[in-house]
């Protein structure tokens, strides 16, 4: 096992975000998992679909909630070498959003392509 690790077995990981932020702790927890996963030099993908697209909506302001606005942290992912961010086009459209509403650079792909991409992963974490 150790040899395999030393040899650098790289797996394809995908973190799938389906929930809006703040109502539950899922979005923040996944974001922290993504940041930690960066330390393991794996092939990390992050997907936003369904209400998950709201996690990267521009203009979030949580001051009145007394909660931390963690949306700026998605912009730090690039510095963690996590650059494979995917957003599902249908999910945006269903919610009246476009790519211009998003606060990070992402690749917008169709639902069918998202499904295909998920199928290529070794590990998928959905929340």
């Amino acid at each position: 096992m150790e040899e395999e690790y030393e040899g650098g077995i790289v797996k394809k990981f995908m973190f799938v975000n389906r929930k809006a932020p703040y109502g539950t702790v899922y979005a923040l927890e996944v974001l922290e998992m993504v940041l930690i996963s960066a330390a393991f030099d794996q092939d990390v993908h992050v997907a936003f679909l369904d209400d998950g697209v709201f996690q990267i909506k521009k203009g979030q302001d949580t001051k009145d909630l007394g909660m931390k606005n963690f949306s700026p942290t998605y912009r730090a992912l690039e510095g963690y070498d996590i650059e494979k961010l995917f957003v599902e086009r249908e999910s945006l459209e269903e919610r009246g959003l476009t790519e211009d509403d998003l606060l990070v650079d992402v690749e917008v792909i169709s639902r069918a392509d998202m499904a295909k991409l998920m199928g290529e992963m070794d590990v998928v974490m959905t929340a």
């Binding site: 940041l35 960066a38 330390a39 931390k68 700026p72 730090a76 510095g79």
Partner: peptide, 15 residues
């Protein structure tokens, strides 16, 4: 202030 997190050390070094 910009990203709302404390960077991991290798991210800090790079930045």
């Amino acid at each position: 202030a910009e990203y709302q997190i404390a960077p991991a050390v290798r991210v800090l070094t790079k930045a």
